[in-house]
Design a binder for these strands. Structure first.
Lengths: 247, 247
DNA sequence: CGTCGAGTTGACATAATTCAAGTAAGGTGG
DNA sequence: CCACCTTACTTGAATTATGTCAACTCGACG
């Protein structure tokens, strides 16, 4: 699962060794299921584990004292969840199931072995962590400086690109699993305003929903509107050390 | 420089070996100077280096197509700059000098050796990268969901805590090097509104400026107002592998 | 068949932006 | 050392994007 995602993100530029693959597989032994809206990992609990999302959508979010919620990151199959909490004594944010999901939980202590045994894999995880910083910063800039319409465009293009990377056969339709309120939590506007903007994007010909399926009609238009940049395309793995065992 | 910062962030919980210290020092051989407002590293250039900030303040920022600017992260002495760009073929964001600064530049290829030679240091860098994701998410939540007054409170407390970590003797005064416009770029409001909020926070007794020196009069009040959490205090290094050479 | 979560729409409120005019401070060249 | 110019900052008035409140519809589910 992680391994296949790595393949997608590296576009095959990096071939994992048998030992590396085995290590990654060892992180995904057990599986857990959660229902829509359930907490996969509550904030505040002692940290010591992280997750791989195997199916469904999830999200990491902040609950502010006011009760307002801000989604920090949407997660799709193959993504690793709660990784920042590996750095902490306590989980720093809630991780919640957007749809029914299947996840694998792994222990921090197992993950730590990677640092000693798999330098190249370690470098890869470092690269992914830095890339996450970038996309978070991108979203922050959009939330801080763009109109609600542009923010919604950003969200839609982001989902489209990320799902497409998982399934390259996907064209411009996907099942939208977020409610209006959840979209609002991602792009930092109210659910009511989200509803208005959604209608407007349909009226202006950017999107066309058919039941739960959303068709992205004008992808270039949405990209232009939102300034979306797909960071994955510029990732660089060429500088990482070789794996100790070649395959 | 990095080494002393690591000491501060780990609160001495992690003693670096001689070899680890030597490696860190090797990243800080040459020094470069930049003037206030100069670009230390422009976005878009081929990536292959990062920096250590040795003195002065800097910031990483996005320039949107509209011309709007959003600061992603403020940097203080000891911070590493442009680290996310290590993951990319091209630098992803501008890094700009807030004040006159001194930095050290190091090559990505030198940094890469760490993955093979210093597993514990690697783990430490991984922890720092994940911690950066957290604080970025915290700022995003504040920008997305809090009032301009709360955002300003957040900014001030953040600066205070980070400077205090560098100089534990510091109490509640520091030299504020940001202009109103720069504060506005961090907390995603306009310079005009920043000026109004600044005056209001003085009037309400939260802060007291005297020339360039800013006194934080009501730190608990600002923390309560902004929901600021100092993530550094909860960092966990206990799970990292041992260093290969003990000191 | 009733309840509940999700979504829509209208009317109104407001925080923050925009525009504009002006002051103050700091650096530079004559 | 003065005169000038630029950058930083402040303040008022008008505007607007988005939020808030509230009523209503719709469909799913037990």
């Amino acid at each position: 699962m992680i391994a296949s995602l790595i393949d997608q993100r590296t576009a095959g530029r990096l071939r994992l060794s048998a030992a590396e693959l085995a290590f990654l597989a060892s992180l995904e032994q057990r599986t857990l299921k959660f229902r829509r809206h359930q907490l996969i990992q509550p904030a505040g609990e002692p940290a010591g584990e992280a997750y791989v999302l195997r199916s469904g959508w999830a999200m990491t979010l902040s609950q502010l004292e006011s009760g307002a919620r801000q989604v920090r990151r949407l997660h799709f199959p193959g993504d690793m969840l709660a990784m920042p909490s590996l750095a902490m004594r306590h989980h720093a944010a809630d991780v919640e199931a957007v749809s029914d999901v299947v996840v694998s939980r792994f222990r921090r202590s197992d993950f730590a072995q990677m640092f000693e045994r798999f330098p190249r894999l370690t470098g890869l995880m470092f690269v992914f962590a830095q890339a996450e910083r970038l996309v978070l910063g991108d979203l922050m800039a959009v939330i801080g400086r763009e109109s609600s319409k542009a923010r919604m465009a950003f969200l839609l293009v982001d989902i489209l690109h990320r799902l497409r990377r998982i399934d390259p056969a996907m064209t411009n339709r996907f099942e939208m699993l977020l409610t209006r309120a959840q979209m609002a939590e991602v792009i930092a506007i109210t659910p009511v305003h989200t509803s208005r903007m959604w209608s407007r994007m349909i009226a202006e010909g950017f999107i066309r929903p058919a039941g739960r399926i959303l068709e992205i009609v004008d992808e270039p238009g949405l990209v232009a509107l939102s300034g979306y940049v797909d960071r994955t395309e510029d990732l660089d793995f060429s500088w990482l050390p070789p794996s100790r065992d070649t395959r």
